[in-house]
């Protein structure tokens, strides 16, 4: 019935045709899925995209068996501390990064295959009260952690064998960092959002905090997803999990904001609102690849947006298996992965 509600409301209808179902994987041993992701995996001389699924106590690696079927290659059992999330490492092969903890992230581990011992294993990268974490190109991992006195930000350069080759401390802002995002095409630049609703910029090579820029109070608790530098401006894609509905624009799920890093001034470029009606209501969690945003809504639907045009381009209503719980873009934007809590993941080409 959600699809029926949406049909007359979305511009041009729900446009499910922009999502094409490709395949499905089902993990009968998974009672409560917490995350799904993809990883590039090189084996026997070829590189392929594999799916990674996580429950509270397991992380499983899936390989494509045919055009529409998947087989489980390996399951890592992590029984001491619950898995909270999978941390994608863009352009990295044969490494799966996971964050574990009770209420907050307490440690970051790498899961990998060792050809030397012909076995799957894991290694510990970091422990602490970790508030935010992001994987960057070239096997780099940035995290913020908090002690009673101070906030520590660190970039770890990972080795192929799951160790840490180098560490670089980043200068912390006064406010707690809530999220990080890489700047496309600028290897040494990193942006973050803070609890005080600012966007901050670092130089990853030197660790310098270059600029703190106010987002404005209209949209509190903004989370950065991606950033692009173009024509001297820094375009940051933000989501607003707690944004309230306003008469002028409905409920904004994502916004593209242009910052002038020289002056710290900003202006909104585009906002993408939740689909109107009962299908939307609130944004629960989402993911951005390039200029495509995807989010799970409180209605149990997954919505997809063209963030540069501010248009909702597709909606996946809750299916027979119930509400959607997870929405992630595959590496390189190859597919949208939509997951149910029962461990079922469906892949769609967008």
């Amino acid at each position: 019935d959600v699809a029926e509600q949406l049909t007359p409301l979305l511009p041009g209808g729900p446009r499910e045709e922009s999502l094409h179902f490709v395949s499905e994987l089902k993990d009968p041993s998974c009672s409560c899925a917490v995350d799904v992701s993809t990883v590039w995996w090189a084996a026997a001389g070829r590189r392929e995209l594999r799916v990674v699924t996580a429950s509270e106590s397991t992380v499983s690696l899936w390989e494509p068996l045919g055009p529409d079927s998947w087989g489980k290659v390996h399951t890592w059992h992590l029984t001491e501390i619950p898995v909270i999330q999978i941390v994608p490492l863009p352009d990295t092969c044969n490494l799966v990064c996971v964050a574990l903890g009770e209420l907050e992230i307490g440690e970051i581990r790498l899961l990998l295959y060792s050809s030397e011992t012909d076995s799957f294993k894991y290694s510990l990268v970091k422990t602490g009260n970790i508030k935010a974490i992001v994987g960057l190109k070239d096997r780099r991992l940035v995290s913020s952690s908090r002690t009673m006195q101070e906030q520590q930000l660190e970039m770890v350069l990972l080795s192929e064998t799951g160790g840490s080759k180098d560490r670089q401390t980043l200068m912390p802002p006064e406010e707690t960092v809530t999220a990080f995002a890489e700047v496309e095409g600028m290897r040494e630049a990193l942006v973050g959002t803070t609890a005080g609703n600012s966007v901050v910029v670092w130089n990853l090579k030197t660790g310098q905090l270059l600029r703190k820029m106010d987002i404005g109070y209209s949209y509190p608790a903004s989370i950065c997803h991606r950033a692009y530098s173009d024509s001297g401006l820094l375009f940051v894609i933000l989501s607003h999990p707690h944004a309230k509905e306003s008469e002028s624009c409905g409920s904004p799920a994502f916004r593209v904001v242009a910052f002038n890093p020289r002056t710290g001034r900003s202006t909104g470029v585009m906002f993408s609102c939740l689909p109107p009606g009962r299908a939307g209501r609130r944004y629960l969690e989402g993911d951005v690849w390039d200029t495509a945003g995807a989010a799970v809504l409180t209605s149990g639907a997954v919505a997809v947006w063209d963030l540069l045009r501010g248009r909702c381009t597709a909606v996946l209503p809750p299916g027979p298996a119930g509400h959607w719980a997870l929405a992630r873009w595959a590496a390189g934007g190859a597919a949208l992965l939509a997951g149910h809590r029962n461990g079922t993941v469906r892949l769609y080409r967008y």
């Binding site: 130089n203 310098q208 270059l210 600029r211 001297g232 401006l233 242009a258 020289r262």
Partner: peptide, 23 residues
């Protein structure tokens, strides 16, 4: 957006801010 809203724009903002920021 116009340049006047955002102030003077520099294509080399990253290098300039890195040179100006405390080490």
């Amino acid at each position: 957006c116009s340049e006047s809203d955002l102030g003077p724009i520099s294509l080399n903002w990253f290098e300039e801010l890195s040179a100006e920021a405390p080490p």
